[in-house]
Design a protein around this nucleic acid. Structure first.
Length: 898
DNA sequence: GACTCCCGCCAAGAA
DNA sequence: TTCTTGGCGGGAGTC
């Protein structure tokens, strides 16, 4: 029931719809909380004065000047004052005395007004939103619809209509309200929020926002070395524009979107911007997004050519508007990210954790149970997805459909391969080669596949489990790892690489910590950069990083950075477990990496091709020894076992581990017995000379980002996965990516991944994994000469997707195999300016082909295969290219909450 | 001086 | 044609 203040205004045009308005609910508690404000707002009820629906009703006889505006406000604030003003105007006799008097009066009033008028802050959109929200319950009873009459609201809140639109638009983007008609909205509260967030996350992943973010970061990073790379940044920004420019408002099934201008200005609509903004948080890890990056991405989606400062400023303004509302909803929190270039405003996601896929079911259940009519019907995940793009979003789905076909074809290939006696290694290698290059695109496949699989799933929970895992992997050998995945932090590190020191870093948002294995010689570097860094010696060596569930220590570090972790939820997990008894041979790692989500921010890994030599040396025999079970067969197994996994949710962790082991052991290596051995072998095989590996600052290489929910599984996979170093000092502002010089990260042992589409991934996050995978894959496959059916399939896919031009084949180049993913990509593609610039090496401008170019740039190593200069790590952590370009660890990231 | 973001003009679009 | 929406950017307040 509406509060007294909620009575419909007499003059409200919408009163015609008075009936619904009567049902408007208010949250008593909230009202109390905001009692003052609310009360203040409700005064107008008794006042003759009501906020005119239209500005024109205001009586500005005078030109709109600050003074006149003030007068108006004053008069609006008090009928008496207004009367006085009127009288004064009427008695326009305007004698000097009178005028002086009036002036004094005005000044006095102005002073009073200013004093009474709290401050600009109190008029902020955020506060207004608070007041607005106070009117309605977070979770309105389904039986009682709450309607919102804009006229009424504007009247009661005593604000301009325009402001209400801003609020409503953002709320609409979250499906907290929906438009019924002119001036009329329905209040849904937060019932739909989980679904919406999930949907947004999904869409965000599909739109590769994380890639865009990373790309922008990368460009920024490059700028530090070469200001001329501005162009590249623009290009990077435009990357997503093509694909996403068409992105429309994301709808939820059952929630009809009736925005008046939905078909017109929707692309620039605040609600669409709001959704995109939210998506950035949902796909980022940590979930911190700077305004700058968000603006760039949003601009990029509009028009690249318009990327002028005014446009940028405008976007920033809008983002502030949105951020204020989101802040009021407690979905985000303003923070500041401090990096070398200064302190940047950013926002941190403080809303509910969104577990991709998994929540679908939960949400469905929830909505079914208590949901308002709107949320009631949440069909299957697929339906939901489709519903997301009812109109313009169709494109995405269209593309997906094609991808699905591709995936199927690929699966067929795998099956064939599986049945065939071909060496898995070979297959995987080729497959991986392609992956690194076009991780983004590929990432879509898994999602699709996943979709299909999900559709097959019978139980919702199973679905959830799977979704949570994000990458369904066949668990053939469950028992191998006894430890719960969660409790087991890391993948197995090859003993051979024991020399490598793992650095554990907290993963703020996910609550999962990352461990980076550094070469002892480099460990000091890390510590030097960030004292907060925690180095933990782990038996595993070459593994680039291991992701572990957070530890308090890690959390602490993160917290210090200002980036609070949610990880607290998983306190039990031991960081140090790092080393899993079970070896996670490459297989494990690969699996971890596979998870698209697992590697959220690895996308920008840069590597030098010059490392080949080192690789050859290091890999040498190891490569041969390495029997990465990367076959398609495994992939198939995974696919096939998806259901099984779902059923065995509780056993997921173990299974995952087992599966990893299984893969590894397919090589005839007994898991238990050979765990260590496997590790060693693998590590050796994949080991890449630290100096050669280069990671651009700002990018983390999480072992496995077991995104949302899959931590358990991830942990298993993490063993082999690359870790991102989340170094407080070096994280990038936006997503918290940590920038580190490759030298610090010495990567390496990244076991081969399964290229199963599923593994590849569902989220942009997966992209990060790609590079890592590629390495391992390459390594494993490098020695093999067997034909690679998967390779052809991938090429086909890539071509189909448009990542590579028709006729172009991603070669199973032995060299590439030894190369880091990024390097491979370069090999396939042309080196980009950025790359050359980074290295300080002048290179012929390479035309950035879209999207290939983007992809290339994205994963480009500091130097292309051809141009890569050799890097040498300095004691200080900086690296120097052969050309003399100095790479320094960058972006000290400090996140401070305001 | 940079950051925030309020404010309201005015055009697009709906009724 | 009227009225609702909301894009947009000036510029004031705040830091």
């Amino acid at each position: 029931m509406r509060p007294a203040g909620g009575e419909m205004g007499a003059g409200d045009k919408e009163n015609e719809h008075s009936e619904p308005c009567k049902n408007v609910l208010k949250t008593p508690l909230k009202q109390v909380a905001t009692s003052q404000l609310v009360l203040t707002e409700r005064q107008p009820e008794c006042q003759p004065l009501t906020t005119p629906p239209k500005p024109k009703e205001t009586p500005p006889a005078d030109p709109w000047t600050p003074t006149s505006n003030l007068k108006m406000l004053i008069s609006a604030a008090s009928p008496e004052i207004r009367s006085r003003e009127q009288r004064r105007q009427l008695s326009d006799s305007s004698s000097e005395v009178l005028q002086t008097k009036h002036c004094l009066q005005e000044h006095l009033l102005a002073d009073e007004y200013e004093k009474s008028q709290p401050s600009r802050k109190e008029k902020s959109l955020g506060l207004l939103c608070h007041r607005f929200l106070a009117r309605y319950p977070d979770y309105p009873s389904p039986s009682q619809k709450s309607y919102i009459c804009l006229d009424e609201v504007t009247e009661e809140l005593h604000v301009e209509r325009r402001r209400i639109y801003d609020i409503v638009n953002v709320l609409e983007s979250l499906h907290m309200v929906s438009r019924l008609a002119r001036n009329r909205y329905v209040w849904h509260g937060r019932h739909n929020l989980p679904q919406t967030l999930q949907a947004l996350k999904k869409v965000g992943e599909e739109n590769k926002y994380i890639q865009q973010i990373q790309m922008i970061k990368k460009r920024e990073y490059e700028h530090e070395f070469d200001p001329d790379s501005e162009r590249n940044e623009e290009m990077a920004t435009s990357f997503g524009s093509r694909e996403q420019s068409e992105m429309s408002f994301v709808e939820l099934p059952g929630v009809e979107f009736r925005a008046a201008s939905v078909n017109g200005r929707k692309y620039k609509s605040l609600r669409v911007m709001s959704q995109k903004f939210v998506m950035l948080f949902l796909v980022s890890t940590p979930q911190i997004v700077s305004l700058e990056v968000a603006a760039k991405i949003l601009i990029g989606e509009d028009q690249l050519e318009d990327l002028d400062k005014s446009k940028f400023k405008t976007k920033i303004r809008r983002l502030y508007d949105i951020a204020n509302v989101l802040s009021s909803l407690k979905l985000i929190k303003k923070v500041h990210v401090t990096e070398e270039r200064g302190r940047k405003p950013a926002f941190k996601w403080t809303g509910p954790e969104v577990l991709p896929n998994t929540q679908d079911r939960k949400l469905e259940a929830t909505s079914t149970a208590c949901s308002p009519p709107i949320s009631e019907s949440i069909p299957s995940k697929e339906q939901c997805s489709k519903a997301l793009f009812p109109s313009k979003g169709k494109q995405n789905f269209t593309r997906h459909s094609s991808l699905i076909k591709l995936v199927k074809s690929i699966e067929n290939d795998r099956r064939k391969i599986q049945s065939a006696p071909t060496s898995p290694v070979k297959i995987s290698a080729s497959t991986y080669q392609s992956l690194p290059v076009f991780p983004n695109t590929i990432a879509q496949f898994p999602a699709i596949t996943k979709h299909q699989l999900e559709g097959q799933s019978k139980t919702a929970e199973e679905m959830q489990v799977k979704c949570a895992l994000s990458l369904p992997e066949a668990v053939h050998k469950p028992e191998t790892s006894q430890q719960p995945a969660l409790s087991q932090p890391l993948g197995v590190c090859p003993a051979s690489h024991s020399s490598v020191s793992p650095v554990i870093l907290p993963h703020p948002q996910s609550g999962v910590s990352y461990a980076i294995y550094l070469h002892p010689s480099q460990a000091h570097t890390v510590t030097t950069y960030s004292p907060g860094f925690m180095l933990q010696p782990l038996p595993c060596a070459n593994v680039t990083g291991i992701k572990s569930n957070n530890s308090k220590v890690l959390n602490k570090i993160t917290t210090e950075e200002g980036d609070t972790q949610r990880g607290s939820d998983e306190p039990t997990k031991s960081l140090v477990t790092e080393e899993r008894p079970e070896t996670k041979s490459e297989t494990s790692s690969q699996r971890c990496l596979k998870r698209s989500q697992a590697l959220p921010e690895n996308n920008l890994i840069k590597r030098r091709k010059s490392d080949e030599e080192s690789l050859d040396t290091s890999l040498g025999e190891s490569t041969k020894n390495e029997k990465t079970p990367f076959n398609s067969s495994q992939t198939n197994h995974e696919m096939d076992s998806v259901q099984e996994e779902r059923q065995n949710e509780t056993k997921t962790v173990d299974q995952n581990v087992a599966s990893c082991c299984d893969q590894c052991t397919k090589e005839n290596i007994p898991e238990d017995e050979d765990k260590i051995k496997t590790k060693q072998d693998i590590s050796v095989a994949f080991a890449i000379p630290a100096p050669e590996t280069f990671f651009p600052s700002g990018y983390l290489i999480p072992l496995t980002h077991c995104t949302h929910g899959n931590k358990a599984e991830c942990s298993n996979k993490e063993k082999a996965g690359v870790c991102s170093v989340q170094h407080t000092a070096y994280s990038s502002p936006i997503t918290g990516v940590i920038s580190m010089p490759a030298s610090e990260l010495k990567t390496v042992n990244i076991p081969a991944f399964h290229i199963t589409p599923l593994n590849i991934m569902l989220s942009p996050n997966s992209i990060a994994a790609a590079p890592v995978l590629s390495n391992s894959c390459l390594n494993s496959s490098s020695t093999s000469s067997a034909p690679n059916p998967s390779s052809s399939a991938l090429n086909f896919m890539l071509q189909h997707i448009g990542l590579i031009p028709a006729g172009v084949q991603v070669p199973a180049n032995p060299v590439l195999q030894h190369m880091p993913l990024s390097s491979q990509s370069e090999n396939i593609s042309h080196s980009s300016e950025s790359t050359s610039m980074q290295e300080g090496k002048p290179s012929a401008p390479k035309e950035p082909h879209e999207p290939q170019a983007v992809a290339e740039n994205f994963f480009r190593t500091p130097g292309g295969p051809n141009t890569e200069p050799s890097l040498s790590a300095n004691s200080d952590g900086t690296q120097r290219t052969s050309q003399g370009t100095l790479y320094t660890p960058q972006r000290k990231l400090e996140v401070s909450e305001d």
